[in-house]
Structure formats: structure tokens, C-alpha cells
Simulated scan of single mutants.
Amino acid sequence: MRIEIENLHVAYAGRTVVSGAGLIAADGEITGLVGPNGSGKSTLLRTVYRHLKPVAGRVLLAGTDLRRLSPVEAARHVAALPQERGGDFELTVREVVAMGRTPYKRAFAGEDAADRDVVARALADVGMEGHTGRRFTELSGGERQRVLLARAFAQEPDVLVLDEPTNHLDIRHQVELLALLRAGRRTTLVSLHDLNAAASVCDRLHVLHDGHVVASGPPREVLRPALLAEVFGVRATVVDHPLTGDPLIAFDHRAPADGAGIPLSAPGDVLGAGPGRSLR
């Protein structure tokens, strides 16, 4: 299913964090949000999975305003892995993942064979099938991340919303997660700090800066040295990855970008705000 965000304005803790954002996550594509800390990525995602209510603008799911759906209807379509991981569940790994089936169950209804199959498959997808009886509280940060991702998979959503899903994962599990997202071809809206991971896994990127979408397009078109300098304040060059051919960003770790910290012009004047436009 397609997600479309129209002229979104979101305030959080008394200040405007997202201002006039518009973007599209196309059906079956992986759409990435990248930008510096504080640029509004997590706030924007929170409006998609209905944790925050926008001041203005809409989030549309296949043309329907998500706010018009009941919580149960929304949960059947959209599953989220937020940065806030919640409290320590006094549950087993399997019980946590089985929570993903809640939108499909009537009150006090038990599991059926279909639920058990979905949960088993979700655990296998994240490599946690051998840990079903362990307590969630006993897990490492990376293991918890994988279990919560399995819970999202168990919802069988049309849309996945993932906020920094590679946090706490070692390199092997980062690679496995990104491969799993590519193979799934489910509509996915994901924020990533790792620009090389974003360039590898995402079909399209939207760059946020100070609450505005300042560039949009395929990774190779968006991740240009000029944008990296102006938005992220780093010197970098972009080459082809020797193994995959994806864009590979090589950063200069010895010095910041020339002119780093210079404010951006009005959104769209320099980088081209809005879907379908990118820095050239």
C-alpha cells in the first residue's frame, strides 16, 4: 500500500519539529528518511504510526486518512518499530512476538494454528527461533531489537514503519535485516543514520533538515557531495561499491566540510524540496 504525507506540520514539546513535509512511500518500495539529529525524522514517523497527531496536514494510506481508521484497523495495516522500545516485558520471546497478532483477535480469543505459523515464521525471519522460551528481560539490546522486529512482522502489515532498526545490531544482523527488508518488498518507511545502509537498501530517499524535506529521489541522485556538505556538514565523495555497485560514501574523517554549519536557504531554493526533486 502507498503512504502519502501531505503538508505535514507537527509540534512536539511546545515547538514545531516538522514543517510542511510532503513525501511518498510507494507501494512495495523501501523509502528512507535521512538527516542530522533533530531534523524531524522520528517525529514524522510517529505521525505515521499515530503516536503523534499533526497540527496540520495528513498521512494517507492508499488514499485514506489514517486518522479516520480505528486503532485496530490501523494496526492491521501499519506496524511500527519505534526508537522507544517500551518497558521490560515480563514475557517470553514468543509471547512478545505473539502480541503482534492482537489486531486480529477478539477479546480473550486464543491462538489458532494460523497464528502459531505466523509467529514461528516471524521468529525465524529474525533468527530468534531458538530463543522462544527466554525472558525478554534477559536479552541483549540487539536480541531485543530482533524480537520487536519479529513482533512487527507478526502483524502482517501492509506498511512497515521502522525508526533506526539497525540500532544495537552487530554488523552481521544489520546486513541480514537489510537483506530481509529488500526481499520482503513490503511498503517500508525507514529512518537510518547510516547513509551507506540507506543507499544500499532504499529505493528512494527523503532528506530532512530542520523539519523540512530538502531533497528527494533515488539514493544515487540525492547523496551528492554538495548535499552531504550542506546538510550533514561533512566532506565526502561518492563512488561505486566494489561488491554491489551501490553508491558508497567515503567520508573525510580528518576535517569537516568547507563551510559546514552555513544555514540552508529557504526549503527548495537550494536542494529542491518535495517528492520528485533532488539536488543536481
Rank of each mutant, 00 (worst) to 15 (best):
D246C: 10
T244E: 08
H209L: 09
L243H: 15
R235M: 06
A229M: 02
E230L: 06
L227C: 14
D203K: 08
L181H: 05
G245I: 00
V201M: 12
A183G: 10
A236S: 13
T188E: 08
R220A: 08
P219F: 03
L223F: 02
C202F: 09
V214Y: 00
L205Y: 02
D240P: 00
L223P: 07
A198M: 11
D203V: 05
P225T: 01
S200D: 15
I249C: 10
R172H: 13
Q174E: 10
T237M: 10
R182V: 01
A229G: 12
A226Y: 11
I249Y: 07
V231E: 00
R224Q: 13
H253K: 13
T244I: 03
V207R: 00
D194G: 05
S216T: 11
L243M: 14
E221R: 08
A197M: 12
H253V: 15
A226Q: 15
V234Y: 05
R204N: 06
Q174Y: 10
P225V: 00
L205H: 04
V239D: 09
L208P: 01
L180F: 09
A183N: 10
V214Q: 01
G217S: 11
L205P: 12
R186Q: 11
Q174T: 10
H206L: 11
A250L: 14
V207A: 02
P219L: 04
G245P: 14
I249G: 08
P219M: 04
P219C: 12
L248T: 04
A226S: 14
I249P: 03
S200E: 13
L248I: 07
A199L: 07
A179W: 10
L177F: 12
S216W: 01
F251N: 02
